[in-house]
Nucleic acid binder design. Structure first.
Lengths: 337, 337
DNA sequence: AGAAGCTGTCGAAGCGCTTCGACGCCCTAT
DNA sequence: ATAGGGCGTCGAAGCGCTTCGACAGCTTCT
């Protein structure tokens, strides 16, 4: 293992000079800098992370806490994680992967040990038990998701309320008057993750404003659950012509069942989904959808965090504006005979 | 921040004693141990990770390199990552998340800086450029996947050859004589990730042994690609009654298209998939499938690695035996008129 | 009884880096 | 000519921990 001292000796300078070349915290003459850089390259020197962390009390690591459970769209989680990792690297940070499993203890452990300089939390619940810990420490953190009380916290999330409103507006513009919302699995609502409720709130509010009828049904993914749900929906609201789906594992079953029932999309029934782009474009009918901006969320989270670590940056709630892309699954409401 | 020294003072012992209580590397009297543990608890002490790493040259961190691209089995990747993280924690290790993006440089950086004690690499290509680096360092590593040359390496993977054989056998047992394989996207084969080729090899070899006809068609996911592929397949091999699918984004399109063409599953056509359990059970027809044991792979990888870090453990290729679960998508071949 | 061996504890020496103050040098302003 | 001020470099003091050797007080063997 090559050390700073060896590099210094090889370059004929003192260790501190090498350190300053590396950090750029003091000015170094061009000749010296070049000589040092040459030695670094030649010897294949890599600063020791532990020593660096000890001396500077900065680990250059950001902890990312991902949910353990897999009942919700996993690829989105993955995409966020990858976006976080790549963005972090561009700022010189590495990512420490924590699973939700450990809960608040993980927060304590990481904060206490100086393992990471900052944290990003995903899958935040409305009244998350990790929040008091975050408020009680001076370690910067960013949440992906929105808890009930955001005072003293920095959050990044899609504006789900606006998303709901947007979906309703789109269907209303097309003349639909009876709209059914196929929501997430009941477990998601019970867990109070917030985003499902916020979407629903946006849907309901805008529907009321526009004078539409709205029916909401949570739904597990899969064909059987969807079939059962759909039967009850048409039973209860036979005039339903518009669907908003916020459960990607219900999307394909819904389309298949509608087809099976002889209801054409979009001629008889329009479907708008809140889902990742990939799901929308790979479905059997290309879906009009509001995308989940996973990459953007990950990137923004890291950038908020880096700003905090650099001293600027403040507690702020960043709500990304939803964008609705019209594809083949939505069209004018059928003319009522 | 609480330090070892403060704990020592609080407990009335020397710093080294506290350290030995923590590590258990020397025997400590019960009374002293208890007193120290009490102080640790009371002061809320957490050992500083950097200092520890510096002094012991052990970071207790395992680097996990995940692929950046998202054209394959993302949920499987995620499940592996989560399994790695949770298993690692039970052994006292944390996970550093690296994306494939940085490539060999990341390996150099992590090895050189002592950031991690060991590495797990996912998405290994047959002739991966990271392999020489791994062989050239004394840092333990485990690959998830199988390169062409495994000398000096430890690998964990599903036995894809046996998987292919198993699928063919199942269909042969049911009397199918004409089998078509819907493979991964062409890009996957071009990238030489190995698993697709190995599956195909297993399929072909066993088919030959059993005297079956086998047609292989790579296929992008999605409906359009699948429709085109399927048309050509029935054109070329109208007697096809068995399908093996190794591309989870082709599964649902295939089922829908068969239905549309009036071919009943499993009465007219049997389908066997190589895919995650979730896909198999949530499809419109519950699929007979060989599962991708993501969790098991992650777990085994960590355990191999920990064994190496502890001194026992050796270079070894662990191939997990495939298991075929019969569900509703496969049945006896239709009787030829 | 004395040697030999345990057990439990301590002190001190680093691990490789950052950072602070000091200092020599040269340039500029008086 | 001389004081003042940058600039570029160095030496040394830690950061908080692990670990090695030392050693005091016992027990056990011959």
């Amino acid at each position: 293992m090559v050390t700073l001292a060896e590099v210094a000796q090889h370059a004929g300078v003192s260790a501190s000079t090498v350190s300053y070349v590396l950090s750029g915290k003091r000015s170094i003459s061009t000749t010296t800098r070049r000589r040092v850089e040459e030695s670094i390259r030649k010897l294949g020197y890599h600063p020791n992370a532990g020593a660096r962390a000890l001396a500077s009390s900065r680990s250059n690591i950001i902890a990312l806490m991902i949910p353990l459970r897999t009942d919700m769209y996993v690829p989105v989680m993955m995409e966020i994680a990858v976006a976080v990792a790549t963005t972090a690297r561009t700022h010189g940070y590495d990512i420490l992967l924590l699973t939700g499993e450990e809960g608040p203890d993980a927060v304590r452990r990481v904060t206490g040990s100086g393992l990471a300089d900052a944290m990003i939390l995903m899958d935040v619940e409305l009244d998350d038990e990790r929040l008091p810990l975050l408020r009680g420490t001076d370690q910067p953190s960013v949440l992906i998701g929105l808890p009930a009380d955001t005072t003293g916290l920095t959050c990044v999330d899609l504006d789900f309320r606006a998303t709901g409103a947007l979906c309703v507006e789109h269907l209303a513009d097309l003349g639909h008057r009876d709209i059914t919302v196929i929501g997430e699995a009941p477990a998601v609502y019970e867990r109070h993750t917030g985003f499902a409720e916020r979407t629903l709130d946006g849907l309901r509010t805008r529907a009321r404003e526009l004078g539409l009828r709205l029916l909401h049904r949570p739904c597990e993914g899969g064909y059987d659950a969807m079939a059962a749900t759909l039967a009850r929906v048409f039973d209860e609201r036979p005039d339903t012509t518009g669907f908003v789906v916020q459960n990607e594992s219900a999307v394909e079953p819904l389309l298949a069942l509608l087809r099976q029932q002889g209801r054409a999309v979009p001629e008889d029934v329009s479907v708008v989904a809140v889902c990742p782009e990939q799901v929308a474009t790979q479905a059997s009918v290309r879906l009009t959808s509001v995308a989940l901006p996973a990459h953007e969320m990950g990137r923004r989270a890291v950038e908020q965090l880096v700003a905090k670590l650099d001293g600027h940056g403040s507690d702020e709630v960043v709500l990304l504006a939803p964008e609705l892309t019209v594809r083949a699954s939505s069209g004018p409401a059928p003319v009522r005979p």
